[in-house]
Structures are given as C-alpha cells and as structure tokens.
Design a protein around this nucleic acid. Structure first.
Lengths: 244, 244
DNA sequence: CCCCACCATATCAATATTCGATACACAGGG
DNA sequence: CCCTGTGTATCGAATATTGATATGGTGGGG
C-alpha cells in the first residue's frame, strides 16, 4: 500500500489546510508521526516544489503547485465545460448566484459558480465539499444515484459530516419526489438563511453527472419564487445533459 | 529522498496532465518505471481518492482531489485576497482583461483574472505558467527581483521554456527602465496579437510579491492606449502593496 | 547572562517496505 | 484459436525507509 506515499500526501494535505507555516516537530506531534520521518517527507516535498520553506523561521507551507496541477484536471472536466455557457446564461437571466456541483466519493463538490459582483459574505464555495443530503444540489444528485451508491452516501453523510438527524426513509421519499419533479429544493437546509433549487445533469446513459443550482437569501428566494425558476433550471440542465 | 513519494507524485502529475484515462502498462512505459511499481502506486493513489478507476476499461485518471486541496492554498493567498477588489475595480473601469501574477520558482504563475464575459478564445490562463522575461507581468516582477534571483530566472527562461533569443544585457537594460517607470509593457512578446501593461506589487519590505496587468488585442490596446492606463494600474498596484 | 528546553537538522544501523521478476486471467485481433 | 497485449496477484530479495540518537542553533526565563 505504499505507506510512504500515504504519509507524504497526508503531510501535504495538512500543510495545504493549515493557515500558518508549520514546523517539523509541530507536524510530527499533530500527525502522530516520527519527527525524523516528517523531516524527510517535508524535505522531499520541498525539493519537488510542493512545499516552501520560510528560511528565517524554518517553517514550511504548501505552495501553489497542487493548485496548478489540479486546475489542469478541472479545465478538462467535461461537465464543467458543457455547463459553463448555461451557468452564465442562467445567472444573467435570473441575477442570482448559480452553482455547478458534481458527485465525488459519497458527497458533492462545488465545481463552478457564477455570482453577483461583490457578495456580502465571501462564499468561497467553489472547491468546497458539502453533505449531499442537505443541499438542493446534493439531493438532485442523490435522486438519480443507483440504490447502493445512495445507501453509501447516506452512511457517509452521517459519519463524515456528523449529521445524525437524517431520516433515511423520509429522505428516500423526498428523493422519489425529486426524481418525479425533475428538481430539488432546499430551504435553509444546509446554510441557514439560504434557499436553493437544483436540477440534475445526466449523462448519455442516464448516469448522474452533476447538478446546477440557483441559490440566494430566503428573503428574496421564497418557495414560490424558487418554483417559478424550476422550468428555467430544468431546461438549462437538460441542455447541458444533451451537450455531453 | 523518499523516492516513493517522488514517484507517486510524478504519476499523479502525469495523470493530471493527461487528456485521457491511462492504463498501467502505458504509464509504466511512458514514465520508465516498473509495471508492478506503477500498479502499486496507482493503487495507493486510488485508495486515497486522488485517482479514479474506470472499471469498464481498467484505466485510471486524476480526480478533483488535488484541485480541492490546492484551492485551499489559493484562497488563503494574501496577495490574491488583497488584489481582488482592485482587480475588479480596474476591470470595471477599463473594461479589459486584468490579471494577477505571482513569482513562483523562477517563472511566473497567473493567480487570478477578471475577464470580459465570453472571450473569443478560451484563455484559461489562470493557473498557467509563463516565462517571466516575455510578458509584461513577468518583467514587472523581474525588475524588482534581487540580482541573483534574476540571474536564475534568465537561465530558467532559456532552459525551461527553451527561449534562446533572450539577450541578457538588453533585458537588464529594459528592466532598469521598468524599475524607473513603475510599469512594464509587452507588445506581442509572448502571445502574438496580445499587448499588455503591468505594475509591480511590493511587500512591506520592498520584496516583489506579484504584479497586475491589463491585457488585450493589439488593435484595441496600442502603445499609446497602454501608456494611458499606466497611472491607473500603478495606482492600483500601489494600493494593493499598501494593503499587504 | 547563562542555562535549559525546544527546535531543525544530520547520522546510521536495523528492518520493515518497496521492488520487480514471474505467473495468471482475461480481452481483442489476426 | 492462438498470440500478444492488457491489468492484477504473489513473494523472495534488496534496499529504501525508519526512528533512536546526536548535534548545533535559537529563544525565553530565571
């Protein structure tokens, strides 16, 4: 299982997630690894350019290298490419924030967004992960998942995001409705004060590829307004599906 | 030197850079590694979620995981945070594409941009690397580099980007002018038909942190127009520097 | 002012881990 | 229907990784 790679990437992830530069001993303690081991690993990552060293303090931090490679993957992403013009179209038509989500190992990932110029709070949601069962985008995806994947996703939501208050039976019922309607709605389900409506993007063979969602504050996007956008969003999602 | 990590990341980079899913033998041949070795490495990356397997064809490709972690680093980037409002301001005032660059191990990296809605060609320049000596953004950075770093950068430009036609003496002269003027200009220097003007962002201690640039087609942005934007850009860059 | 405690870093023998030749099952093409 | 390619599993040998230990440097408290 190449444990050296596992450790190496864990160190890299830790550094990427850390606000400040980190020292060797500090990392070793926090990650429960041997100090010498961390020293070697960080040294290797340094020589590969994934990590930089503040020579004054001898502390290390992640560089932009991961981002650089990661972007290559995103730029090639077919769903993103297909969705981009429609995201923009929706945004310009409705003047609300529009998101693109994709399923990623049992939860969902925000892949792209179009957003009003200067939002009040800096919602750096692109690149973030969210529990599928709580968001409109997520439910649009879950509704079209094969049953065994859905089961895993429910378990994952409870474990990974420590969400205990999901009633599987109730969720399954809601998802059946989503499948029938063609759209999913969330009212303050994930972020309080935020409502949204989402529609699924399906591949040629009917497998779920992602979803697009319109999101905004409850004051502006009440249930009636959301439902008014339904056909607009379903239409866009369908066009994206066809473009795949 | 933890050669296992080196190999692991090389495999990951190769997959991230590859358009199509790759097979084990293929990778092994291309990367000059043992087939068993690649198999183990890819298996490890798979179990860590950095790579996914197309179970039909048994081919592997990079997932969005690297991007996810990479984004965390970008989002925290101080220069990017400080520059963002000014980038937007410049874009709205001038109605031209605006870029933010940072120096990164001997060349430059495009960190952020604000761009007209639907550009003719899809310039996915964010995340891309460019030879510093050829671009306005790069020259604005080079001009404020300590001499030994500048020497390295010139060598790197010739080797890494295989640019032989850089005259070091001439470049140094140009950079002195850039330092005096406070801005750098490029006319079709890197991408033919593209002109741009850039100003440096400096840290508290005077070290170069990055640069901002306005870029556009030669027809619209001729030399006179570019120079007309100079004070605008220098002003923004200075404000960003102060915000750091 | 000096000591001590902590740090990053270097060393090196021991061994756990990676390595790669070999083998196998499977798929597709000639 | 073989034959050459693939992905995958196995296992002894080899070696790269490991971690206790040592060193030099730095900063803070007495």
């Amino acid at each position: 299982m190449d444990s050296t790679i596992v450790k190496g990437l864990r160190v890299l992830e830790t550094l990427a997630a850390s606000d400040q530069p980190r020292g060797i001993s500090e990392l070793a303690r926090e990650m429960d690894l041997n100090k010498s081991n961390v020293q070697r690993i960080v040294g290797t990552l340094l020589s590969l350019g994934y990590v930089s060293k503040d020579s004054a303090t001898s502390r290390y931090q992640a560089t932009l290298r991961m981002w650089e490679f990661g972007l290559q993957v995103v730029h090639r992403n077919q769903v993103r490419r297909a969705a981009q013009p429609y995201l923009r179209g929706l945004y310009e038509k409705l003047n609300e924030s529009v998101f693109l989500c994709v399923p990623d190992s049992d939860d969902i990932l925000y892949l792209d967004k179009m957003e009003a110029a200067a939002p009040v709070r800096i919602s750096s949601q692109v690149g973030a992960r969210a529990p599928a069962a709580r968001t409109a985008s997520g439910k649009a995806i879950l509704a079209h998942l094969p049953t065994e994947a859905l089961d895993r996703a429910i378990v994952a939501a409870r474990e990974h995001f420590r969400i205990a208050d999901i009633d599987p039976a109730k969720l399954r019922k809601e998802l059946a409705a989503v499948r029938a309607d063609g759209f999913a709605i969330s009212q303050s389900g994930y972020r309080p004060g935020v409502n949204s409506i989402a529609a699924p993007i399906l591949g040629r063979d009917g497998t779920i590829m992602g979803s697009i969602a319109v999101t905004g504050p409850v004051e502006r996007l009440d249930l009636a307004t959301l439902k008014g956008y339904a056909s607009e969003i379903i239409n866009a999602a369908t066009r994206i599906s066809e473009a795949l």
